[in-house]
């Protein structure tokens, strides 16, 4: 058995002299490192640390390389038609809807039809969609695109809640469009009812004609108006209809003075993103997509026998379906 020498004082004090040559091979099964002489243990520890650093560094470089490669792959990725929509059957419906949305964007505008499906059995009434909508569109006081009415049903002890998130219905036969005296609102070929803020005269005739109370008017108010200073976040622009709209206190610059409403986050759709209310729905209750795609999730859901639409008797043909 090979004997270890006693370490020199200088090694213990942090001397840089190597003692590795005096140590047994790590593969030596007969040698217990914890029983080894002090100098050898220090040497082994250093070696272990060096190796660990090398491995960690290598892994980091590899990971960085992998990430970059993955990002490059994402950037170059062109969504391909889903040959098997059931591949999303594991529950990642957001990703499925996102891919379907990108697919739909490749089609001409007139060949796609955006619809929303809201599962009332899944909605928990958290109003996260309302909040995200307000944040996405930087909505001022009194303007709301997607409130969530909560109605208690039944009598005690058999009571329950019904939550009915209410975006704009984007009706196929919208009562708000023909009443506009200046053609400031119209239905796009893809089904979204939009408003041109630069044309709207603010007569609120569309508000009066909407059977869902889905339009609100911007009266130029600010949350901070009773205080000495309007906070910066209130004067930041929003990007509705892919334009920059900056509200300024004390002015009547659009969208102040206009009718406003949900537009299915058209500015996000154009960028291949789902509407804000869809991505933030805690219960996964809101679905969005192109109903002309027969393989799409919304097409599938809209075919359910649980489907109903609000005030169908008026003949407005809403593009928002509720699963009851």
């Amino acid at each position: 058995m090979k004997q270890f020498n006693q370490p020199r004082r200088s090694d213990l004090d942090g001397g840089h002299q190597s003692v590795s040559g005096d140590c047994p091979e790590s593969g030596n099964q007969n040698q217990d490192i914890f029983k080894a002489p002090q100098a050898c243990r220090i040497s082994q520890r250093r070696k272990f640390l060096q190796n660990s650093l090398l491995v960690a560094g290598g892994l980091s470089i590899f990971a960085a390389f992998q990430t970059k490669t993955a990002q490059a792959a994402d950037a170059d990725q062109k969504p391909t038609p889903l040959s098997n929509p059931q591949s999303f059957a594991d529950g990642n419906h957001l990703e499925r809807m996102r891919v379907e949305l990108i697919q739909a964007l490749k089609k001409p505008v007139a060949e796609r039809k955006w619809v929303m499906v809201i599962d009332q059995q899944k909605c928990v009434g958290c109003s996260a969609c309302t909040v995200s909508c307000c944040a996405e569109n930087n909505l001022p006081p009194g303007v709301v695109y997607r409130p969530v009415p909560k109605v208690e049903t039944g009598t005690f002890p058999n009571v329950s809640w019904v939550f009915t998130p209410r975006p704009c219905m984007h009706c196929d036969n919208p009562p708000c469009v023909p009443v506009c005296p200046v053609k400031a609102t119209w239905k796009r070929k893809d089904g979204i009812v939009v408003i041109d803020y630069d044309i709207c005269i603010g007569c609120r005739n569309c508000l009066a004609s909407c059977p869902y109370n889905a339009r609100t008017a911007d009266f130029g108010e600010f949350y901070g108006s009773p205080t000495p200073e309007i906070m910066d976040y209130e004067t930041r622009p929003n990007y509705e209809y892919s334009e920059q709209w900056r509200r300024k206190p004390g002015t009547e610059k659009s969208p102040i003075g206009n009718a406003r409403k949900c537009h299915f986050c058209l500015h996000r759709i154009r960028e291949g993103m789902l509407p804000a209310c869809v991505t933030t729905c805690l219960g996964g209750a809101t679905y969005f997509g192109d109903s002309t795609d027969r393989n799409s999730l919304v097409h599938e859901l809209a075919g359910s026998n649980r489907v109903r639409r609000l005030k169908e008797e008026l003949g407005t043909e809403p593009s928002v379906y509720y699963l009851v």
């Binding site: 309302t130 009194g142 709301v144 409130p147 969530v148 109605v151 009915t164 209410r166 109370n213 609000l310």
Partner: peptide, 16 residues
């Protein structure tokens, strides 16, 4: 008359 039940309480504001 609200278009839907619960709308008045869903999002409160003096304009609503």
């Amino acid at each position: 008359t609200p278009a839907m039940k619960g709308l008045q309480e869903a999002y409160t504001d003096s304009r609503l």
